[in-house]
Design a protein around this nucleic acid. Sequence first.
DNA 1: GCACAACTATGCGAAAAGCGAATGTATCTG
DNA 2: CAGATACATTCGCTTTTCGCATAGTTGTGC
Lengths: 291, 291
Amino acid sequence: MNVEQLQIFLNVSQSRNFSATAIELGISQSAVSRAIASLEDELGIILLSRGRFGARLTEVGEQMVQHARQIVQTREQMERDANVVRGLDGGRVRIASFRSAATHLVPPAISRLTQRFPNIEVTLIESAPLEVEQALREGAVDIGLVPLPRASEFETWEIARDEFVVLLPESEAPHAEHLSWEGLSRYSFILYNYAECTSMVREHWARTGQPFEVAYEIKEDSTILSMVAQGLGAAILPRLAALPIPTGVRSCKLPVPLERSIGAAVVAGADRSPAVYQFIDVLRKKGMFAE
Amino acid sequence: MNVEQLQIFLNVSQSRNFSATAIELGISQSAVSRAIASLEDELGIILLSRGRFGARLTEVGEQMVQHARQIVQTREQMERDANVVRGLDGGRVRIASFRSAATHLVPPAISRLTQRFPNIEVTLIESAPLEVEQALREGAVDIGLVPLPRASEFETWEIARDEFVVLLPESEAPHAEHLSWEGLSRYSFILYNYAECTSMVREHWARTGQPFEVAYEIKEDSTILSMVAQGLGAAILPRLAALPIPTGVRSCKLPVPLERSIGAAVVAGADRSPAVYQFIDVLRKKGMFAE
DNA sequence: GCACAACTATGCGAAAAGCGAATGTATCTG
DNA sequence: CAGATACATTCGCTTTTCGCATAGTTGTGC
């Protein structure tokens, strides 16, 4: 018998609905069905009577809900006690992040962290990569999010890859899926003048041998998006910097892919509190489906 | 998190010893090691400090033991409640069995049954197969253990197979592993005159074309064993009937194997109480390693 | 009474977890 | 330093779990 099964049972007993529970818990309906069936099998009794209406608790089911709740609560208490011992109760994580990560990557990670460890205090500062580094050096923050690679004074982990995309005015955009360098070079470009991105794009383009006509150099990604929407030119931005893509702008893949790497950095050698360690952990897992 | 893991943890916390716990619970030492490691991993803490001395609870471990005990007890309560609903609390199983099964198969099954369902009342009558049938017909017992096959008035399940073995006086026994029909036919035989066994052995032998010299016909398996030990002849018995094999007697495989099938029988169509059903269930699983 | 809608159950293949046996590692004993 | 003791790890294998797609079941409305 498995505590997760009991949790599933509790959810079903409240929602009276296998499928809804599956969505709540982020698993498939069949997993819910099997979890309940497995419990019923183990206990040799029917917990829920199913039908068109969903699933209602049987009489024994009612009794078992009490016990199940007891177990699930005890299990939660175990986790809380463990977190206290681990120093994850009341810890602190001070984060500095450059803009796109601070917008799209950090909030879900913070959310997940505070869900698991409600008493961790989190602060977030948004600033440019070099200022993030400075804040780290000064000890003003515990962890920084920056594009990789970084100087060796920092210890880093890659947490996401961010692909550069081409942004075109929707009015002029070809509906063809595949852009060629020749096709692209007809546009005048708005160059993203931000940290390493500028040089990465210039160098990537240089390798094509095509002309690269830069009409504007802009630091603000939102400004660039507006300009593209207005038909003032095309731009090449990391996808995260371009999100959300406004109406009037079309995003396409580059003819040859280009990625930047986004990482978490801490001062090398500094001892990290358990809370910081957990945040790194969450980021690493979060990275799986952060685009 | 799994209730079985918590049970393992509790056992270890008491015995302070992984290997001893493994034996107690009938699992391998590596299973214990991994169960603990898995708990520690999930909670992010060390529960037991290991060493040459065994395994001692850490401070957090002490706390966790409390919670674990709570959970395991609640789980046991769930089972008890479920059994009450299933009618397995206070049920009754009346068993009739022929001798060898009553001696070697039924006791461990009863033991397992009463361990799982302490309030089931069990009675056992030992008698010959035909009397077992009669007791079933009269409703004097709920379930009978008999050699298979049986008449269709009974519903049966095979619960074990029992191989016939040759019993030889140790003094004259050849040390060769493989007996031939020719070698065997030099002995004079003590025929086991019991139910189907007699005819099964006669027919099996008849297929060899060798002479079969029967010096005695005896009903009691223990008498046969004594006679073999005294060097009065050889015998062919189902292994269960021959157990335990006394000193002075050697048991060998037949040149061509012969098995009888042992089954549980109930009156066809009669409704079986949950307790009887459980007993059949236990027998079927028990059958796996009953020889 | 039939088709539909709302649910749950199930077969299947892939992935993950679990197990036992053997082996490795660390520590204490003499 | 050899040997004993006890937990950890690895390997090959079996069992379980999961998600997907699909089938089955049961009220409801026409």
